[in-house]
Amino acid sequence: MSVVERNNIRLHGAGDRTMVFAHGFGCDQNMWRYVEPAFRHRFRTVLFDHVGAGHSDLAAYDAAKYASLSGYADDVVQIGRELDLQNAVFVGHSVSAMIGTLASIEAPEMFADLIMVCPSPRYIDDGDYVGGFAADDIEELLASLADNHMGWSAAMAPAIMGNPDRPELGEELTNSFCRTDPEIARQFARATFTSDNRADLPKVKARTLILQSSDDIIASEQVGEYVHKSIPGSRIVYLKASGHCPNLSAPDEVISAVAKFV
């Protein structure tokens, strides 16, 4: 299976440069549906699903590889090589901001610009560092996911599992944008919420923009500012939008901030 099929890569638009949009923990590439089209006239745009999410190839899911964010970063680098990316723009939401960080360190020539939407290098408090969550909170989250009753009716879980070969059926399922195999969801949650990429931030060479939401319980202002301070020469823009998904709740504000930066 090719990288294109594995990560359900969708290409749109045209331009000298390419803009890659990466979704975070929870949903799939549809997270960018109100933002990505705005850049098609200037950029070739790339949408994809992380392995395990959306319409990616579930058979490619390897628990050992995706136990840490570096597995996902390797995929991003592979996607970049497949599409022969140079001097491109990487836009990562939530945990994908850190996945993009790792990818840009691994292949510095690939991404000239790094745009982080609601990033956090570490979710769990650590000494003076305030990530926003106690270790117990995250353990409780992982335990709930392991119980397999979090969020969705357990009885409907087989419907997710049953359709990876027939994505057209998935379209008919409500809630399908944010459905994941419960076991994969649990492991992605572990990789995400136990990650610590603070030491990687100073290694970033790409021009970096941080979009900081207000009232975001997943990635607070304090965390956004930590990222800003840790990446030399980075810029931070405070959005009026509240919550963890400004790309959905305030797409115009996100588009305008991104457009100004690139």
Partner: peptide
């Protein structure tokens, strides 16, 4: 707390 994380990452986007 787990419910909030799940709400913010799954249901609010949905």
């Amino acid at each position: 707390v787990p419910g909030r994380i799940f709400y913010e990452t799954h249901f609010a986007p949905l």
